[in-house]
Design a protein around this nucleic acid. Structure first.
Lengths: 337, 337
DNA sequence: ATGAAAGCGCTAACAA
DNA sequence: TTGTTAGCGCTTTCAT
């Protein structure tokens, strides 16, 4: 591996000058530059990232911490963030935490020791103190898919409450007269907000009873079980809003097994905008602007890394109702189950 | 941030000794060690990974390159690899290449400059030379989900040909009398092998004609289109083997739209063992031992990193037929929860 | 068993 | 415009 000194020697200039052309800063004669670039090429020189970051320069690496890589929502987010990161010249280190506080703290230590330039975090275990602590160590952090009220923490999250309300309204508009809700874990802010949205709309209707809400865990199997429970409590249910798409898929499977047809007997809507692609019949959902969350988070992170004084607070992004087959009876294609 | 020198000063020993306790090598008096550990604790000292790797030590980081993070197969693989990596004390850097050679080569440069200790690659664009080249630079590499015949390259891949044959046989056993095949991209070894497996079984049956094979792209939409095409060529088809689960899902959607019932009218089987979870009716598939591929790949990589002289060649892993609702007409409906 | 000192490859004053 | 040099935090001979 050629070093900066080799390049200096071959080109006949000093390491400082070579460093200048690498970093494109400081004055350097065009001819000199050309000579140096040539030397770098012939030596196939690649600066050592380790050395640069040791010498005080950034590592050009950011980390992304997610709770569950098996939930398609996060790969999509990761994809968006990676694309954006590449654009800014960063590589991303992906950390899957299993939503386990211990693992997360451990990762954070490792990441700091690796001198990552910044951190994008999707976590439901980390407390505000942890984030603030990081900031104190001057590690830029931006939170996604979660937020901390009125704390100076940069966060990007969808309008979950509004989304929950939109979902409920949509079911109502499709003629549902008794709508159940499978909600996600209560320790997740986004999950709570979605439920509140549902209650905003359904809570005061004459048919509403608390037992129409079943709590679950954001996973397919959990959704299945919750749907079975819901059906046993309220066999006459004709609409279901699941707190995320994965649970909606589980619910769909349960309905299928119990002989209920979707959307004919029961209309079903999810949240996230991911499963849409892989279920039959396709799932109506409240789509989050996943890609946008990713790019905005990355953009802000870069600003923070570069020391710009950005206002740190929560940003709420618009969600979008995506109507598919699971909530609409469409004569044109209702040929089979 | 406390440095090794701070620890040395506080504990009253030299940096060399501190280094020894960090790395647990060389002789150091138990009492001394205790004192130093205490000092490290009180200073909340964390060695700088950047400095260590500059000083010749490993970076404790490996990279995983995958072509498509949106295909659930790869998150599963990533998950397995990350788990294994953590166990060995490594952090993983995830690189999504979009199956784009340019991006991959670029990543490789970056990764080398970052001094990653090793590389696990799932790529269909990289040529054997690229891999060999890497090895020459003494970067340990192991390939997954692909392999290069008779070259000294460590690779882990499923028995795709056998899997294709198993899938075809299963459809035959379920009473199918005309089986179509949606195959994946021909530049992907695994994809080709699966098709060959199908041909091994169906190629000589009286009903077989080449037009029963439609080529596609491993994505849901591609599977959809391929199924539509297949149906127009052979409306009387009663079994379909899709080269991966994503295409199988697409095929299922197409069948649904065309009024064909699964499995009553057409039986459908995929390959991979992932979609299983999110489709209704659930998809029969040939499951790859994804987790095992991940752990074995990581295990070998570590051995290579540590300089053990391992035999580098391809390893073929067994696949498993997973029978679900999409290939079996079952009145009793075996429950799954 | 412990310490002194020479780098690892690079950046960033400071000089020239 | 270019060069000299002192670190960045750690590992690792080589002494002691």
């Amino acid at each position: 591996m050629a070093t900066i000194r080799d390049v200096a020697k071959l080109s006949g200039f000093s390491v400082a000058t070579v460093s200048r052309v690498i970093n494109k800063n400081g004055y350097v004669n065009p001819e000199t530059e050309r000579a140096i670039v040539t030397a770098m090429k012939t030596l196939n020189y690649k600066p050592s990232a380790a050395a640069r970051s040791l010498a005080g320069k950034s590592s050009s690496t950011i980390a992304l911490m997610i709770p569950d890589i098996l939930n398609p929502f996060f790969p999509e987010l990761a994809r968006a963030i990676e694309d954006a990161a590449n654009e800014y010249g960063y590589t991303v280190m992906l950390c899957n935490s299993d939503n386990n506080l211990q693992k997360e703290m451990n990762y954070i230590d490792v990441l700091i020791s690796k001198k990552v330039d910044g951190l994008i975090v999707a976590s439901y275990s980390l407390q505000p103190e942890h984030i603030l602590n990081l900031k104190q160590k001057s590690v830029p952090v931006v939170v996604v898919d979660n937020h901390f009220d009125s704390l100076p923490i940069m966060a990007f999250i969808s309008k979950n409450r509004e989304g929950g309300a939109i979902a409920a309204k949509h079911l109502l508009e499709q003629g549902c007269r008794k709508i159940g809700h499978i909600c996600g874990p209560m320790n997740i802010q986004a999950s709570r907000d979605r439920s509140v949205g549902y209650e905003d709309v359904c809570g005061r209707l004459h048919w509403f009873v608390p037992s129409l809400i079943v709590q679950s865990d954001f996973h397919v199997d959990g959704g299945y079980k919750a749907m079975v429970e819901l059906l046993s409590r309220h066999p006459d249910i004709d609409g279901v809003f699941a707190g995320n798409d994965l649970m909606a898929v589980g619910a769909m499977k349960a309905l299928y097994h119990k002989g209920k047809r979707v959307p004919d007997d029961v209309k079903l809507i999810g949240f996230d905008g991911i499963g849409v692609n892989t279920v039959v019949p396709e799932l109506s959902t409240i789509a989050q602007p996943i890609y946008e969350i990713g790019t905005m988070a990355m953009k802000r992170l870069v600003q923070m890394i570069q020391g710009e004084a950005v206002q740190e607070h929560s940003h709420e992004l618009d969600v979008k109702l995506v109507v598919k087959q699971s909530t609409v009876i469409d004569e044109a294609e209702s040929e089979s189950a």
